[in-house]
Each structure stands twice: as C-alpha cells, then as structure tokens.
Design a protein around this nucleic acid. Structure first.
Length: 274
DNA sequence: CGAGGTACCTGACAGC
DNA sequence: TGCTGTCAGGTACCTC
C-alpha cells in the first residue's frame, strides 16, 4: 500500500514519538514477519535497545538503535506502523508489538502479512532486502535531470514499468506513477527511449511535485493506509486519475481510462496524455 | 535486458 | 444468503 509519501509521513511522525525511547520488550504474534534474524536472536538483540533515529530509504523505514543495530521495516501492501497507548486494545492483524518505556506501543499491523522486518548490525544491507540496489531518492539532490535523462534514453521498456522499478528510482508505486505521468502529460505505455527532452523534463518535475504534495497531505488512504495514530491521509481527494476510471478528467473532461500496463491497473486521461 | 507469470495473504465487492 | 471470481498502495523469484 504505502509508497514514498505514506512512508515519509510515518517516518516524520515516528521521529516525534519514539526517538530517545527504549524498547523494553517485544511481543511476536506472527513470526513470519521477522525476516532476519530468527525470532530468538531478534528478541535477544532488540530488548532494551535505545531508539536513536528514524529515517527512510525508498519505501523502507530505518529505525536506528543503540549498539549499531538498525531495524529495517517494509510495509508492502497493507502494513501499518502504529504508536498507541499500551492499554489500547488491538485486533487480529496486529502481529508484532514493541513495548516502549513511555507507556506507548509501536505496533506492526499487517492485514496481508506481506510486510517484513529485518534487524541488521551496522550496515549489513544485503540481508535487509537489498537496500544497496535501490535507485536514487526522487526528492534528493542526487536525483538530477541529467541522470534521469541518461537512463531513460537507454531503456526500451514502457515508462510506467520503468518508474515502478525500485532499482531505477526508489519510492514510486502504482498510485504516484499514474499521477506523475498524468501531471507530465505522458501515456504510461510510451517507450522510455522515445520520450523527448521536453517530456523527460516534464516528467522529472511532475514526479517531484506530486510526491511533495502528497507528503503535505499526509499520503493517500483508499483502504489500508493509516498514519501512526491510525488516521487516514488526505491525498485521495487530490488524485487526478488513480481510481477515477469512467469519471471526467478535471482538466479536459475526457473520461479517465483504465487498463493493464506493466501488469498493473493503470489509470490515465486519453485527452491530456500523449 | 524485457515481458510475463506465480506466489505470498486477507478482505471487499460484483455478479449470479 | 452464499458461492465464485477479480482486484488491491509490493516485491521476490521464475521462465521464455
């Protein structure tokens, strides 16, 4: 479910709520969500760790702990990270509970159980789901127009599939790929190496504009996404094409279309996107 | 490298 | 009501 803006929203909130606190204990109700190391070692390592910092790389949440440990969390489709009072009840989809020293729990809620947690020492990113293989952060300075242009010109695949590849650019998922392509006026089926310089520049800007705006709105909630207080985002009201098939384009009035591109449900405006 | 499929899970929703 | 099929913010892994 969550893409870069949702993960960023969660990270900003976690920085306020859990940093400087200690993980007193952990309740593991579904151990398959602990990808590395095994349950026993995970518990031994993490107990009494101090949470020093929370950050993000692509869609991965990085929780820096004392003793050089980092807990890496990926929410996949339906994961939630919640920070709630320990006395508050929880449902059957709450699979891992970190009990903090301030009377709050950090809870990993995950309806479809696709999410994963890795606990790594120093920078063992290899076991942590290949963070080293991620592409540039679209909102950072090292994501430049020149680099973007250079890579696009060498790829024959359709632009939608390319934007979804995390080793090409980190953080975009199905919603924001569709939204950015609309914003840039480019059809999702278009081959990457056939985009003009002007189209590439429009796309480059569109990606950054759409992501930044979505972060300001606290992400998009259709069904599962919630922030750490278990509240919905607001960007679903701002979407131009995603989940708007059959409805009129806000810009030109054409009916928004939906079809499968890159094996994903893909929304676009046949009027605005060429 | 590219394209397509499957698998992992649970639930919502449409259609019969 | 209830059954069946499809779809879902993701990604790893497999084959051709």
């Amino acid at each position: 479910m969550p893409e870069l803006p949702e993960v960023e929203t969660i990270v900003l909130e976690l920085q306020q709520l859990i940093v400087e606190h200690i993980i007193r204990d952990v309740t593991i109700r579904e151990s398959k969500l602990i990808a590395f190391p095994d349950k026993r070692e995970f518990l031994t390592l993490i107990k009494d760790s101090l949470i020093e910092d929370v950050s993000r790389r692509g869609k991965y949440i990085l929780i820096k702990l004392s003793e050089g440990l980092t807990m890496v969390i990926h929410l996949r489709m339906t994961g939630r990270l919640l920070v709630l009072p320990a006395e508050m009840g929880y449902d059957k989809h709450t699979h891992i509970i970190f009990h903090l020293d301030n009377g709050l729990d950090l809870r990993f809620h995950n309806l479809r159980k696709f999410g994963r947690i890795y606990l790594v020492k120093d920078n063992q990113w290899v076991e942590a789901g290949n963070l080293t293989g991620l592409g540039p952060e679209p909102l950072s300075d090292d994501f430049t127009l020149d680099k973007f242009k250079e890579i696009l010109k060498r790829r024959k695949t359709n632009i939608k599939a390319l934007l979804l590849k995390q080793d090409f650019i980190a953080g975009l998922g199905n919603i924001y790929t569709d939204e950015a392509l609309f914003e840039a006026g480019i059809l999702p089926h278009k081959r990457a190496d056939e985009l003009t310089d002007i189209e590439i520049e429009k796309l480059y800007r569109a990606i950054r504009v759409v992501l930044k705006k979505a972060i300001e709105y606290g992400g998009t909630t259709f069904s599962d996404y919630r922030n750490v207080q278990n509240k919905m985002g607001f960007f679903q009201n701002e979407l131009m094409v995603y989940k708007r098939e059959g409805k009129k384009c806000y810009r030109c009035g054409t009916e928004i279309a939906k079809e499968r591109v890159a094996s994903r449900g893909t929304h676009y405006c046949p009027g605005c996107q060429k």
